[in-house]
Protein backbone atom coordinates (compact mmCIF):
# COMPACT_ATOMS: atom_id res chain seq x y z
CA UNK A 1 0.00 0.00 0.00
CA UNK A 2 1.21 3.48 -0.87
CA UNK A 3 -0.92 6.62 -0.62
CA UNK A 4 0.18 10.11 -1.53
CA UNK A 5 -1.78 13.11 -0.25
CA UNK A 6 -1.32 16.69 -1.42
CA UNK A 7 -2.62 19.51 0.79
CA UNK A 8 -2.78 23.01 -0.69
CA UNK A 9 -4.27 26.36 0.22
CA UNK A 10 -3.52 29.88 1.49
CA UNK A 11 -0.83 30.42 4.09
CA UNK A 12 -2.71 30.59 7.41
CA UNK A 13 -5.35 27.96 6.62
CA UNK A 14 -3.42 25.33 8.52
CA UNK A 15 -2.37 23.45 5.40
CA UNK A 16 1.03 22.36 6.74
CA UNK A 17 -0.51 21.39 10.09
CA UNK A 18 -2.90 19.01 8.30
CA UNK A 19 0.18 17.35 6.83
CA UNK A 20 1.81 17.09 10.29
CA UNK A 21 -1.32 15.51 11.74
CA UNK A 22 -1.54 12.92 8.98
CA UNK A 23 2.22 12.18 9.24
CA UNK A 24 2.22 11.75 13.01
CA UNK A 25 -1.00 9.73 12.87
CA UNK A 26 0.49 7.42 10.26
CA UNK A 27 3.59 6.90 12.39
CA UNK A 28 1.28 6.14 15.32
CA UNK A 29 -0.35 3.50 13.09
CA UNK A 30 3.07 2.01 12.39
CA UNK A 31 3.35 3.12 8.74
CA UNK A 32 6.33 4.61 6.96
CA UNK A 33 5.86 8.28 6.16
CA UNK A 34 7.52 11.20 4.39
CA UNK A 35 6.33 14.78 4.72
CA UNK A 36 7.51 17.32 2.18
CA UNK A 37 6.42 20.97 2.61
CA UNK A 38 6.72 23.83 0.17
CA UNK A 39 9.10 26.25 1.82
CA UNK A 40 9.45 28.90 -0.84
CA UNK A 41 8.60 32.57 -0.80
CA UNK A 42 4.97 31.52 -1.35
CA UNK A 43 4.80 30.54 2.33
CA UNK A 44 4.99 34.19 3.23
CA UNK A 45 1.41 35.16 2.38
CA UNK A 46 0.62 33.23 -0.79
CA UNK A 47 -0.14 29.57 -1.33
CA UNK A 48 1.28 26.78 0.80
CA UNK A 49 1.33 23.08 0.10
CA UNK A 50 2.74 19.84 1.40
CA UNK A 51 2.86 16.25 0.24
CA UNK A 52 2.52 13.34 2.68
CA UNK A 53 3.31 9.82 1.50
CA UNK A 54 2.24 6.82 3.60
CA UNK A 55 3.20 3.22 2.98
CA UNK A 56 3.62 -0.10 4.70
CA UNK A 57 6.83 -0.49 2.64
CA UNK A 58 9.95 1.64 2.22
CA UNK A 59 9.12 4.99 0.58
CA UNK A 60 11.49 6.01 -2.20
CA UNK A 61 10.49 9.46 -3.45
CA UNK A 62 9.06 12.13 -1.12
CA UNK A 63 7.96 13.89 -4.32
CA UNK A 64 4.75 12.45 -5.82
CA UNK A 65 3.99 12.23 -9.55
CA UNK A 66 0.22 11.97 -9.08
CA UNK A 67 -1.32 12.31 -5.61
CA UNK A 68 -4.06 9.79 -4.78
CA UNK A 69 -5.72 12.29 -2.48
CA UNK A 70 -5.83 16.05 -2.90
CA UNK A 71 -7.12 18.61 -0.43
CA UNK A 72 -7.84 22.00 -2.01
CA UNK A 73 -8.46 24.70 0.56
CA UNK A 74 -8.84 27.50 -2.01
CA UNK A 75 -9.58 27.90 -5.72
CA UNK A 76 -6.05 28.79 -6.91
CA UNK A 77 -4.84 25.48 -5.42
CA UNK A 78 -7.61 23.53 -7.12
CA UNK A 79 -6.79 25.17 -10.44
CA UNK A 80 -3.07 24.51 -10.04
CA UNK A 81 -3.11 20.88 -8.93
CA UNK A 82 -6.38 19.36 -10.19
CA UNK A 83 -4.73 17.95 -13.30
CA UNK A 84 -2.03 16.14 -11.32
CA UNK A 85 -4.42 13.97 -9.28
CA UNK A 86 -4.29 10.24 -10.05
CA UNK A 87 -7.18 8.59 -11.92
CA UNK A 88 -9.93 7.51 -9.50
CA UNK A 89 -8.34 9.75 -6.89
CA UNK A 90 -10.20 11.71 -4.24
CA UNK A 91 -10.43 15.51 -4.30
CA UNK A 92 -11.53 17.19 -1.06
CA UNK A 93 -12.83 20.71 -1.62
CA UNK A 94 -13.11 23.40 0.99
CA UNK A 95 -16.69 24.11 -0.10
CA UNK A 96 -16.89 27.21 2.09
CA UNK A 97 -14.52 29.02 -0.24
CA UNK A 98 -14.64 27.06 -3.49
CA UNK A 99 -17.87 27.47 -5.45
CA UNK A 100 -16.35 26.29 -8.73
CA UNK A 101 -16.81 22.71 -9.93
CA UNK A 102 -14.00 20.21 -10.48
CA UNK A 103 -13.64 19.71 -14.24
CA UNK A 104 -12.20 16.17 -14.01
CA UNK A 105 -14.77 13.37 -14.42
CA UNK A 106 -12.47 10.48 -13.43
CA UNK A 107 -12.08 11.45 -9.77
CA UNK A 108 -14.41 11.50 -6.78
CA UNK A 109 -15.12 14.93 -5.31
CA UNK A 110 -15.98 15.43 -1.64
CA UNK A 111 -17.27 18.90 -0.82
CA UNK A 112 -16.62 19.76 2.82
CA UNK A 113 -18.24 22.95 4.18
CA UNK A 114 -15.33 23.44 6.56
CA UNK A 115 -16.26 26.76 8.14
CA UNK A 116 -19.86 25.78 8.85
CA UNK A 117 -18.78 22.47 10.38
CA UNK A 118 -15.98 24.08 12.37
CA UNK A 119 -18.41 26.60 13.87
CA UNK A 120 -20.66 23.71 14.89
CA UNK A 121 -17.64 22.08 16.53
CA UNK A 122 -17.02 25.22 18.53
CA UNK A 123 -14.44 27.31 16.67
CA UNK A 124 -14.15 28.77 13.21
CA UNK A 125 -10.39 28.23 13.50
CA UNK A 126 -10.77 24.45 13.35
CA UNK A 127 -11.41 24.28 9.59
CA UNK A 128 -8.21 22.31 9.01
CA UNK A 129 -9.15 19.80 11.73
CA UNK A 130 -12.58 19.29 10.15
CA UNK A 131 -10.90 18.71 6.80
CA UNK A 132 -8.27 16.24 8.08
CA UNK A 133 -11.06 14.37 9.89
CA UNK A 134 -13.09 14.15 6.67
CA UNK A 135 -9.99 13.06 4.72
CA UNK A 136 -9.03 10.29 7.14
CA UNK A 137 -12.65 9.07 7.47
CA UNK A 138 -13.36 8.99 3.73
CA UNK A 139 -10.02 7.46 2.69
CA UNK A 140 -9.77 5.07 5.61
CA UNK A 141 -6.11 6.08 6.00
CA UNK A 142 -6.43 6.63 9.75
CA UNK A 143 -9.00 5.76 12.40
CA UNK A 144 -10.43 8.52 14.57
CA UNK A 145 -8.10 7.44 17.39
CA UNK A 146 -5.00 7.54 15.15
CA UNK A 147 -6.02 10.94 13.74
CA UNK A 148 -6.46 12.38 17.23
CA UNK A 149 -3.15 10.84 18.31
CA UNK A 150 -1.54 12.44 15.25
CA UNK A 151 -2.98 15.83 16.18
CA UNK A 152 -1.71 15.49 19.75
CA UNK A 153 1.79 14.55 18.59
CA UNK A 154 1.82 17.36 16.02
CA UNK A 155 0.76 19.93 18.65
CA UNK A 156 2.87 18.63 21.54
CA UNK A 157 3.36 21.43 24.04
CA UNK A 158 0.08 23.12 23.05
CA UNK A 159 -2.20 20.83 25.05
CA UNK A 160 -4.81 23.53 25.66
CA UNK A 161 -5.81 23.28 21.99
CA UNK A 162 -6.36 19.50 22.11
CA UNK A 163 -10.09 19.45 23.09
CA UNK A 164 -11.19 21.92 20.41
CA UNK A 165 -9.10 20.26 17.70
CA UNK A 166 -10.49 16.88 18.72
CA UNK A 167 -14.02 18.21 18.27
CA UNK A 168 -13.08 19.48 14.82
CA UNK A 169 -11.66 16.09 13.82
CA UNK A 170 -14.75 14.32 15.18
CA UNK A 171 -17.01 16.69 13.22
CA UNK A 172 -15.11 15.80 10.03
CA UNK A 173 -15.55 12.07 10.71
CA UNK A 174 -19.26 12.58 11.45
CA UNK A 175 -19.71 14.56 8.22
CA UNK A 176 -18.42 11.60 6.18
CA UNK A 177 -20.48 9.09 8.18
CA UNK A 178 -23.76 11.04 7.98
CA UNK A 179 -23.24 13.06 4.81
CA UNK A 180 -24.04 16.27 6.69
Amino acid sequence: MIKRTLFAGFGGQGVLLMGYVLSHGAMHRGLNVTYFPSYGAEMRGGTANCTVTLSDKKIASPVASNPDLFVAMNYPSLEKFEKSVAKSGLIFLNATLIKEEVSRKDVEVIKVPTLELAKEAGSDRAINMVMIGALCAKSGLLSLEDTVAGMQAALKGKEKFFPLNRKGIERGFAFIADGK
Binding site: Y20, M27, V33, T34, Y35, F36, P37, Y39, P62, V63
Partner: peptide, 10 residues
Protein backbone atom coordinates in the same frame (compact mmCIF):
# COMPACT_ATOMS: atom_id res chain seq x y z
CA UNK B 1 19.82 19.72 -0.53
CA UNK B 2 16.99 22.04 0.40
CA UNK B 3 14.40 19.33 0.01
CA UNK B 4 16.27 16.96 2.30
CA UNK B 5 16.65 19.73 4.87
CA UNK B 6 12.88 20.29 4.91
CA UNK B 7 11.49 16.76 4.56
CA UNK B 8 10.24 15.07 7.75
CA UNK B 9 10.64 11.31 8.19
CA UNK B 10 10.76 8.92 11.12
Amino acid sequence: DGLMGQVMEP
